[in-house]
Design a protein around this nucleic acid. Structure first.
Lengths: 197, 197
DNA sequence: TTTTATTAATTGAACGTTCAATTAAAAAAT
DNA sequence: ATTTTTTAATTGAACGTTCAATTAATAAAA
């Protein structure tokens, strides 16, 4: 039946189908059948390419993390290194078009909940949390004293995650995301310059 | 007639056991057996008192919401009505001892994720989100112009949820919760008085 | 070139497990 | 005696995994 060299194509097909299924049916109702049907493949293929359902789930989270990292890297590369620009980039990467899709947003939240009880996901999750904090802290530290930079980074990270959470849960995510971005930037930038009074 | 007053006892037993099971095993691995065993009862009793597993899950979320509402009400009653006091109360209620228990924190997050795909939970969730926002907005509006009050309320609500989320997911929730409370108060109070320059 | 062998990709059915719900019987209280 | 409460066994559906069989593509041999 198949052609050779299908590996990467199929893996991506299945990862996308996984996120679609989680977004549509929830983690609870996502099965290897609901995934493989969406990918237009058979259920057995999941075992073949990912070892099993669990392996596919982890691969999907890793994919989301990669996208987020990539978006940030691209944005940072296109600016000078000023703290203002860095903060803007961090916020924008976290609210990028891809992250705003219902697919990505709902998948993230599902992963978060599940990561509490699955070490494999938990590890990935904590790396991501630490990365956001650390990027923010670096930007703030350029203008603020250490202690203030730490506090500002924690507050900003939480505000981003919180807005993101509330938007994902709201009836009209698109609207929520748009204002979230504005208000996160406003807070981050005004905090950055709060020393100059 | 039968043993009187068993109803409320058993219901509370089962609700607590549900949260314990969700905290320990996750929503994914919580079954009517894992719940009833923790409650020291048989699995059939869940159908008797809650109609089924789903009914019990919803009752548990309603219980968490009630606790949160009660904590806020008690705190507000014990203060003057100044905006500062109100903000302090709101933050403290959201980080109360009960909310900080691993049981409550993990259960909340599980509910959040699940509420995306279950209308019954989604409704309760949105009521809660709206309540937090509305309480905050009321306090800010006492000092800030309408538009600024709205923005401040959204930012504070998100910061609370975000800190809460990050604490619940972190390795050492207790430590995270403690600082979360401090930083949320600091932001809320300084924003409240940001007009007086 | 044609034929044969090997490898890679894919399917789908069978299997064993797990779960929620149901139910009938027992226990306990009035 | 009657009603409520509780248990424990049963049922049937749903799930993830496994695996033998199939097909297509490639390589090797003739």
């Amino acid at each position: 039946m198949p052609k050779v060299g299908m590996r990467d194509t199929r893996r991506q097909q299945l990862i996308t189908a996984t996120m679609e299924s989680i977004a549509e049916l929830g983690m609870q109702n996502t099965t290897i059948v609901s995934i493989s049907r969406r990918a237009g493949l058979s259920s057995g293929i999941i075992g073949h390419y990912f070892g099993g359902k669990q392996g596919l789930i982890e691969a999907a989270l890793r994919y989301l993390l990669e996208q987020l990292g990539k978006e940030l890297k691209e944005r940072i590369a296109r600016t000078d290194g000023s703290p203002e620009q860095r903060l803007k980039c961090i916020v924008e990467a976290n609210f990028s078009d891809f992250q705003q899709t219902e697919m990505a947003a709902k998948t993230w939240l599902s992963f978060w909940a599940r990561s509490m009880h699955e070490p494999g996901l938990q590890r990935l999750q904590q790396i991501n949390n630490a990365r956001l904090y650390s990027n923010l802290r670096y930007a703030f530290a350029a203008r603020l004293p250490p202690e203030a930079a730490t506090a500002a980074a924690r507050q900003t990270a939480s505000m981003i995650d919180g807005f993101w959470l509330r938007s994902a849960l709201s009836k009209d995510p698109a609207e929520g995301f748009a204002e979230a971005q504005t208000l996160c930037k406003r807070f981050a930038l005004s905090t950055l310059n709060s020393g100059s009074h």
